[in-house]
Design a protein around this nucleic acid. Sequence first.
DNA 1: TCTGGGGTCCTAGGACCC
DNA 2: TCTGGGGTCCTAGGACCC
Length: 487
Amino acid sequence: MRAAPTILHLDMDAFFAAAEQASKPSLRGKPVVVGGLGPRGVVATASYEARRFGIHSAMPMGQARRLAPNAAYLVPRFTFYRAISGQVMELLGRLSPLVEPLSLDEAFVDLEAGGVADDSAGARAAGERLRRDILATTGLSGSVGLAGSKMLAKIASEEAKPDGLLLIEPGTERELIGPRSVRIIPGVGPATGEHLRRAGIVTVDEVVEAGQDELVRLLGRAHGTSLYAMALGRDDRPVVAERDAKSVSVEDTFDVDLHDRLRIRLEVERLAERCVGRLRGSGHSGRTIVLKVRRYDFSTLTRSETLRGPTDDPVVVREAAARLLDLVDTTGGVRLLGVGVSGLADYTQEDLFAQAEAQAGALAGGAVGTLTGVPAGARAEAQAEAEADTGARPSEEPAAVLPEAASRPAERRWAPGNDVRHTVYGPGWVQGSGVGRVTVRFEEPGSAPGRVRTFAVDDPELEPADPLPLVPGGATGAASQGRYPAP
DNA sequence: TCTGGGGTCCTAGGACCC
DNA sequence: TCTGGGGTCCTAGGACCC
């Protein structure tokens, strides 16, 4: 806990939904829900208008639709959000070299390390300037928390939402958080909250009264001691700029439970290859392969295997995943499969080969073998993302025998929310599709709300397009080049 | 229309070693 | 020889976060 409130926490307001509203003028001021549109989808982000209907993150989509049948329901466009996030992180980087991103829309910044503030007035000025810069650059609002520790800065930004700034003056934190629910402390979720409630502990002050020994008894060593410290406002965790990845994983929930053992194996193998694509794309290899299975009744289990050394070989990972699947009873059906790799090493298999080859070459003075390259992995990652962006639903590809065109159904290309361009009407976005038709609203970030037209899904004048920048001109990064990178 | 996907950290038991 | 004591690794599960 430092004496001046120079730790800043930024949290973008309803980020995915706000980005969609900024991108689609007709949705401004309207309830917007971003999330999975399949039968088992959940809400990723609800706009503040949608929250008034009781919709919130992680709620099943079906429930959201019952609460707000007339809201706009859109698939997430991660490439677009990543581009905006990059602009925001760039602005944070101007404040300090110590920026710790927590997700696409959230980060800590150490203002003191950046030399931009060493007291309350300076910190507040920097926070307010940052909010103005974010709005000017991206068209979106973010809320800022300022305090003497990470925990309090995060609590402050949460209290400031939406579109606000809150500074917690060091020395005032106990009176601020003391009467509040323990649930405001990051790390105290539903289970811990209920556990504490049963022990008669509901407020932060009651955590302090209980004392450290009692908390350790209730919650275990690590959780108990850290919660007690947090409740007292003690938190000396530094802002850390670079944190090494510890694992890489991919998983798919299927629209309908899988029963066929061969199909299940096929999906596990595909997941293993996608996982390796991401692993290689990040420049890693790993030692431990993890298979995750969620059964029809939502019970979830994992099986893992640690290899003698790290690998990024798709064959090795695929075969390990298949061995792990052999250990799992799938009778009754499977709703989710996942494959992950942990125990990451910083080097890739290619490097190991290259080293071995170089050594062999040096010894023999001879030829060097062919090396496999990273691009295959990078391509696989881009492909996986393209599928995620267009709302791919794994269970819609049941048969490898289907012809190419049939395996890429129209509803994927024309998923609600995706950008398109028509040769006559220009840029727009998919409002909906079905029975061979696709409905497009023709508007763009700077335009007035646009009109809707309907086309045949195979209309040659209509094609998928890249997102347009939210702010013309003055924008930085990807947007200054007139468009965001293709998904 | 009942429950996503990608992560992190912690615990606990057993194996194994000194 | 009725039972040590740590440390580390592996596995499985669970809580939590966005």
